[in-house]
């Protein structure tokens, strides 16, 4: 077979030398390597006690955003549900009633908004799809649970705390340490 490019580079494959034939030399070399690792710093993150800082774009549990006045931003347009490759998002739209302006930002809102975390693949497409600044993936990873029903996250689980009534938690959700 002729070479196809001028970039070929043969790998280093020399026959064994006498010392390599003796097994022992290279075994001892290897043992020295492993021995030196005894004194290395362990990179281990002892998880429940130590926690690793996730990147600011980490794709964990979803959150539904509110605006500064504590109104839900979601308008139930359904783009996130369409964008979801796993079809994990279910929502029901409803018209905003009189007197609910301080709860919902737009005229339409999601009466029911459920994400099945077991289906979800945390790809982040819903976050990208949202035209209303309403859904984000957070830096909290989804916890395990014993039953399937523990994974249906409805609006109560997803919404961030209301900045007006629960400012401390709101700050925590924003990552601003109070």
């Amino acid at each position: 077979m002729q070479t196809l490019t001028n970039k070929a580079l043969a790998v280093q494959r020399q026959p064994m030398t006498f010392w390599e034939r003796l097994y022992l030399i290279n075994i001892i070399k290897g043992m020295m390597i492993t021995f030196s690792h005894m004194f290395k710093k362990q990179p281990t993150i002892r998880y429940p006690e130590q926690k690793r800082e996730f990147s600011p774009v980490f794709r964990g549990l979803h959150v539904l955003n509110r605006d500064e006045e504590g109104r839900e931003r979601c308008t139930a347009c359904g783009l996130c549900a369409v964008a979801c490759p796993a079809e994990a998002i279910t929502m029901e739209a409803a018209e905003r009633m009189e007197g609910e302006e301080n709860i919902y930002r737009e005229e339409k809102y999601a009466a029911k908004y459920e994400i099945n975390m077991l289906r979800c693949i945390f790809c982040g497409l819903c976050e990208e799809a949202c035209p209303k600044d309403a859904i984000y993936l957070s830096e909290t990873f989804a916890p395990a649970n014993y039953t399937r029903k523990g994974f249906i996250y409805d609006k109560n689980d997803l919404l961030i705390p209301n900045p007006l009534t629960n400012a401390a938690d709101y700050a925590k959700a924003k990552g601003v340490q109070a």
Binding site: L61, V63, N145, D157, D169, K172, G175
Partner: peptide, 9 residues
């Protein structure tokens, strides 16, 4: 704008 979900189940 938000970083954490405070109520994982």
């Amino acid at each position: 704008p938000v970083r954490f979900n405070l109520n994982p189940k």
